[in-house]
Computed example of a mutant assay.
Amino acid sequence: MSSYSIAVLPGDGIGPEITDAAEIVLKRLVASNQGLALDLTRYEAGASHYRATGVTLPPDVVTACVAADAVLLAAIGLPDVRNPNGTEVQPEMMVGLRRALDVQSAPRPVKLYPGVRSPLADVGAGIDMVIVRENLEGLFASFGGGAVVGDQVATDTIVITRAGTEKACRYAFELARRRNGRPRDGRRRVTCVDKANVFRCFAFFREVFFDVAKQYPDIEADALYVDAVSLYLVQEPDAYDVLVMENQFGDILSDLGAGLVGGLGMAPSAEIGDHHALFQPSHGSAPTIAGQNIANPIAMILSAAMMLDWLGERHDDPLALGASKQIEAAVAGVLARGDCRTRDLGGAASTTDFAEAVAAAL
């Protein structure tokens, strides 16, 4: 029996709707896989919770997330819900949860599925890459710090450590070993993305990257500057397999990648540590369409598939690994069929319609 406890955080805006959609798929998956059990327990946190209680991330929710086998988070944040200092409450929750779970590496798949149109006129052999963000350091290490002097000067500090960079780079190479290589020719490659020609911290990041690369002689390793990669991802997206980078660069380039494959509704993500992991779509809470049942749930559903893949790897569980593949295959099949697409993909299907179509495909 494969039994896992999942802490589910629906969050804000469209979060509860896409959470319902993911649960439709997961419950059908469990029903069709004898021996697989998922205990899905919901917890309240986020901007709506802050508005009601003054607390964004309750301590008992953090405790439950740490105790769970995995965390499935939908979307958090509302632009009109802010701290007294004027900042949104969303970063407070996300950074707090990341630090509590110690999730160092954040893979964000960028994959163009059959039946989904890319804005690029030519995608070559296809788009199938993963952007890996170092998740706790970089510019985000300044969260809660930084300095403002009067109304004239503001500073934040970027932090790069050998330990944090090694973990993210090692995760990227291990991931490359599991993949089929870049679409162009099947070569397994990890690309370091930095600004090593200007900043000492990025030169250090690149140095650590190539130190780690020596431990993976079966995987090609190269390095490119972030501004160049922003161009190359548009010009030759089939040339990339796994890319690893500092936190802020990963935050930006993963949105660019999502734009190449149909938008943020197609962008799942994970945050992986030595002992814990969190899974969530890369998009925000989209409050302007909340409650209308029109949001694209694919990123949430595929994030749940990533969760099962991680559980399968961590526990050497072929049932969970197989279940992950079943979800992705079902999503791909519905998209390729073309008769059930949400509005952002040019169709008229509701959030629930798409989830039920994937469940039926299982």
Rank of each mutant, 00 (worst) to 15 (best):
H276L: 07
N247I: 00
Y43M: 10
G96H: 04
V212H: 03
D227H: 06
L233P: 03
P109I: 05
S48H: 02
G86T: 05
P107F: 08
A286N: 02
F143G: 02
L335F: 07
T191A: 11
A147V: 15
E271Y: 15
I294Y: 03
R337G: 08
G86Y: 08
G263I: 12
L243R: 00
V148Q: 15
D69G: 10
D69F: 07
P237C: 08
L36I: 05
D251E: 15
D185P: 05
R200V: 05
D211S: 07
I6Y: 00
G96M: 15
F279W: 02
D39W: 07
R98V: 05
D255N: 09
R200I: 12
L321V: 10
V208I: 09
Y4F: 14
A52C: 09
G346L: 04
G259A: 06
A361T: 13
P107C: 13
T63P: 06
M93I: 06
T191P: 03
P237A: 07
Q90G: 05
T19S: 11
A213T: 02
M1P: 15
K167Q: 07
H315C: 14
R184E: 13
G265E: 07
G13D: 06
V116P: 00
A163C: 15
A332G: 11
S5H: 09
Q326R: 11
T63L: 12
F202S: 12
D317G: 10
A70G: 12
Y216S: 09
T191R: 03
G322P: 03
A52T: 14
D60K: 11
R188A: 13
L112G: 03
C340T: 07
N83R: 11
D39A: 11
F210G: 14
A125T: 07
T288L: 14
D238Q: 12
F143T: 03
A45G: 04
A154E: 10
V149K: 15
A125W: 02
A37F: 11
A223T: 09
S5R: 09
A21R: 00
G11C: 09
F249Q: 01
G333M: 13
F209E: 01
G338Q: 04
R188S: 14
L38Y: 01
A196M: 02
V226N: 11
P297R: 01
A37P: 02
I127M: 05
V198G: 13
G150P: 09
L308A: 06
D317I: 08
A323D: 04
A52V: 13
T342V: 11
S5W: 06
L302Y: 11
R117H: 13
V130M: 01
L72F: 02
D194Q: 03
M1I: 14
I289G: 03
F173Q: 11
A74W: 05
S105G: 09
E17W: 02
D227L: 08
R314G: 08
A323C: 04
G144T: 11
V25P: 00
A330M: 08
P16C: 13
F209P: 04
P287C: 10
L101M: 14
F205T: 02
G11Y: 02
V123F: 05
S282E: 15
P84T: 09
A258C: 10
G346E: 09
L78D: 05
H276K: 13
A360W: 12
A213E: 06
Y171R: 09
A67N: 11
N247H: 01
L57G: 01
A359N: 01
Q292K: 12
Q326Y: 13
A336L: 10
L256N: 12
V149L: 15
